[in-house]
Design a binder for these strands. Structure first.
Lengths: 144, 144
DNA sequence: ATACATGTAATTGATATTGTTACAGATAAA
DNA sequence: TTTATCTGTAACAATATCAATTACATGTAT
């Protein structure tokens, strides 16, 4: 199991909109950099737009950031592209047998443990901004 | 996306072997409590056995714990049932375009961030033992 | 020998992912 | 107003994973 690459591609899109600030960041331009199909990018752009992270308009080429990158965390992107639902990183088997002490309690016992693990992961995502990501790319490129 | 319920079922199996200590914990007995097929349980028993968590023998009914439950963490089960590979909780798109500053750096920039998030989640799993799980079930049952 | 258990492979149905094609609708420019 | 270009979106296919199911080989005890 792996969390969908929509998350990584979403980060890619936002970073590239920023670094291509002067140019026009169309779905085709993004698709070339990501190495995928423009329609895939447009679907993701729709999700990022719905989450208030970018501005896109039908008929008008190019996406723009709707916020400062320092105000967008990886968690925001993760939620925007809908890769993992709340409390559902781990799945728990349904309908265990109620006549068994383990069967009738396992779900309630495990659920908070799984949720805690998921929240710990998400906390890390909350502590990284897209500005951090772009800065790292810039450093690797010796842009600054 | 969700992590396979093999993980939750693996925990269920270990807890039930413990609470059924006096009885014979066969794959059919476990399957009834989990509410699945005995062959599914046997596959999981094979994984738990391979990881050194339980003892099972062909032709001999019932599984036994190979370790104290206090020495088995949720992380041990998680690894045993093979639900998430190292550094692969999040997937990253392959072959982004090398002629783009973002394309040629995104993987190296993102990978350590994703790994850190995964490790934070796994750390929580390391800090819970199967003894904790069984104790919680026992408490809910007023067994002790 | 038999009865019964585990070990394991093959198959199926359901679901998610990613890519692809096609086209409607919006916009700008000629 | 016509044309070109872009976004928005739906439909579809290919692939992968999951979970259940069936079947059967193998091992053990009586």
């Amino acid at each position: 199991m792996s969390i969908s690459s929509r998350f990584a591609v979403g980060i890619h899109i936002l970073a590239l909109i920023k670094l291509n600030n002067e140019g026009v960041t169309s779905s085709e331009f993004l698709a070339t950099s990501v190495n995928t199909n423009p329609a895939v990018i447009r679907k993701l752009m729709g999700m990022l737009k719905k989450a208030g992270l970018i501005e896109v308009h039908p008929g008008i080429a190019g996406a723009k950031l709707a916020k400062e990158l320092s105000c967008i965390t990886l968690f925001d992107v993760y939620k925007a592209v809908n890769v993992v639902q709340e409390k559902e990183l781990f799945s728990i088997h349904e309908s265990p047998h109620p006549d068994c002490p383990v069967g009738r309690n396992i779900q309630n016992t495990i659920e908070p443990l799984f949720t805690a693990a998921q929240l710990a992961m998400e906390k890390v995502l909350r502590n990284v901004t897209l500005e951090d990501v772009v800065r790292d790319i810039a450093t690797k490129e010796n842009i600054c």
